[in-house]
Every structure is written in C-alpha cells, then in structure tokens.
Simulated scan of single mutants.
Amino acid sequence: MSTTDLAPGANLAVLRKAHGKSQRRLAKDANVSLSLLSKIEVGDRALTPAVAAAVGKALGVSMAEVLGESSVAQRDEVRLSALRSALRDYDLPGRREVNEQRISAALEVAGQHRDAVDVTQLLGMLPGLLRAATTYAHTVNTLDAWMALSETYSTVYWLAARHRWMDMAELAVTRQRWAVEQKPNPLGEALAARDRAGAYLNFGEIETGLVIVDRAVSAAQTSLSGTDRDIAVGILNLRGMTLAGRLEDKREAAREADRHIRSAWNATTAFGAEVDVHGLTIGPQNTFTHELATRVDLGKPRDALRLVDDLDVALEGLPPTRVAPTRINVARAQLDVGDRDGALENLGIAWGVAPQMARIHPMGREVFRVVSSLHRRSNAKLLKLSQLSGIEI
C-alpha cells in the first residue's frame, strides 16, 4: 500500500509509474483526459474521488490505494497490532467481569475522541474497549449489549477508513453486521448497512454501495416506525447522497444524488436539532454538510457555495469531525472557482479545528498540495500548514 507522505495526486504519479503505465495509457484506460491527468500529477488540479476511483480501476487497485494509506507513528504500531488482535478474537470473551457502566463510559470517551478527530487517543483506547465490549455482549447477551459492541465496531471502521486501512475497515463492518444480528435489531442493521456501504465508497465501488443503501432503506421503512425509522432512513440517505455524487455518469449522479438529498431532508424534518445515535449524527446541520460535499463531488462548486451565506453560523455547535471536512469541501469548491486565498483560509481553519486531520484527510492534503503549487511564493500561512501536514512546498 502506498504512503500518504505524498498527497493523493503525487501518490498517483508514483503508482502509475510503478505499474509501468504512461500518462497517455492510463488516461485512456480510465476514460479521463490526458491534460487533466497531467495537471493532477504536477499539482495544478486536485485529484477528486471520482477520478481516483476511475484511475484505481484502470490500475487494478482500490480508490483507497490511489489516495494512499496513512501510517502511524512507530510508538502506535503496538496499539494497531493490539486492535487487529481484538478484531480477530470476536468470539473469544475475556474472563474478567465487565459491567454496563464501564462500557457506557468508555463509549462516551471514544465518541469524544472521534468527534475531536483525536485519532491518537482513539487508537490507544480501542483495543481495550473492543475486548471489554466483546466480553460484555457474550456475557449478558442483551440487545443493548450487542448494540454497544456494534457501536464499537463502527468506531473501529471509522478509524480504519480515515487511514485507508481497508482490510481492517472491511473486517470491522463484517463484525458490526454480525453483532447486530445476534438479537432482532432493525435499527442496528440499518446503521451497520450505512457503514458497509461506506466501505464500498472507500474502495470506489459506488454502484454496489448504492445497492446496499437502497436495500437497507427499503428494509428500514418496512421494519421500523416513528423516530427510529426517520433516523435510519435519514442516516442511510446521507450515505446514499455521498455515493451518488461520485458516480461516473454525471447525469445519473445528479439524478441519484437529488433523490437521496430529498429523502434525507424529508427524514430530517422530524428533528429540530442534531440527534446522536450510537456514535452517528442526524439532523439539519449534518444533512447540510453532506449536501454541500455532494454538490462539490458533482462538479457544482458554485451550487455548493450558494448553499450558505454564513458558514460559521451553519456549522455552529457541530464537532470538529464535521466542521473540518466541511471546511475542506468549501476549500475544494473555492479552489475550483479560482479563489485560492479563500481555499487556503478554509483549509487553515479545518486543520486548526482538527490538527490530526492534516495527516490523514486525503482531500485536505490534496487541496493544500494544489493551493501551495499555484501560489507563486510561499507565505507564513503556507509554511505553517506545510509543517502541520508534512507536505513540502
């Protein structure tokens, strides 16, 4: 797996050469223009998720590999190994007694680390939490206990997907599905389907991810009612709009994205504010952030920028895990319309809110690579972000 010491566009150039393909050959195989591919590799244009998926397919690798796997510090390798071990031991509960209060408290702390994008602290606590939640679920064998284990697996998936550790991400969603199937749990199954579709998104297998979403929405509408149904349908459609925005056929992408956007907003109207559900969030603000990102993926940066007059107000109260990616998506849109200074400003805000995202968020790194390449001279802000991200300018 390639490394994100390089931003995605630069990493693509390394991958292409490693596979022995010329730019012309890869552009033809991926059905992208030679000019665009050349500009991406030298840093004049950003590598978008849709193009990353297309070139990945042409190279015979996943989109995640094109974007590049994030490494961890040497001191964290032991923790990562411990997490992989805990994932393997899914059916081997420990002997030490675990109570509900311990699991609830640990899940709350894990949620705080996730919201803050504190991946270092999260990696440190997840192996122990996963083993404790496994023991608790096997011991008491209640729906709530299995749901706590499912939520833990969802957090493991989130961490793995952010680093493009796709073997771990794929295993985590498989374990999550297994956990919610231990007791009849339609809401848990919907949330697990959301993460499973996310794994397909990370691999660049967009059409399959959409099938997972639509099937899960249909099941939720049949098996759930009231607030639980609105939660399930809303969260699934947030994933659906993200997937749809990255379809290769842009007409189909726009049509499918609009369908999921409308459905998400219809479900969201039941909530006057953001609602947290087993580590996930549904509500008007989160729906807005997903729609904005989808408009950018659709190649409609001006539509995305027109969604809000005051971004500070629109994001008020949301955690860094939502604020930072939204700022990055706004920066993407600004870069697309030629506002380099605005893009740099929003990227700086994103990384200021969630500093560890500078090392792991592929699009944030890609936007910085392009902005720094297009600036004719370095400045204090560029130098600061270069140090934060580890990307030379």
Rank of each mutant, 00 (worst) to 15 (best):
A216Y: 11
A13L: 12
Y157V: 07
T321C: 14
L12I: 05
A380R: 14
A161D: 13
V353F: 05
D336E: 15
D276F: 07
D5R: 15
Q356G: 00
A52W: 03
D303G: 02
V72W: 05
R79K: 15
N11C: 00
V42W: 01
V98P: 06
F368K: 11
D76K: 04
A137W: 02
D309E: 13
A82L: 14
H278W: 15
Q23G: 14
P319Y: 01
G279W: 07
L382K: 07
K28T: 12
S218D: 12
A30N: 12
A354F: 02
G68P: 06
L374K: 06
G342L: 08
V370F: 10
T268W: 04
R75Y: 13
E65R: 10
A46E: 01
L187Y: 02
R88M: 11
T289N: 04
S104Q: 15
A106M: 02
W265R: 15
E205F: 03
L236M: 03
G9D: 09
N99H: 15
R259W: 05
A145S: 15
A216V: 09
A273R: 15
K17T: 14
Q182T: 01
L129G: 04
A10V: 02
D312E: 11
G209A: 03
G272P: 08
R340M: 10
Y90L: 06
R239H: 04
S225Q: 10
N141D: 15
D91M: 11
R88H: 13
F203C: 06
I282G: 05
L224T: 01
L15C: 06
G9I: 06
S389F: 01
A253Q: 07
L187G: 08
Y200L: 03
D297M: 01
S85G: 12
Y90R: 15
A270D: 04
R96Y: 09
S150G: 14
G240F: 05
F368D: 05
L298A: 01
T155K: 11
G60I: 05
H361W: 10
A354Q: 04
R255L: 03
N31S: 13
V275W: 11
A324L: 07
Y153S: 08
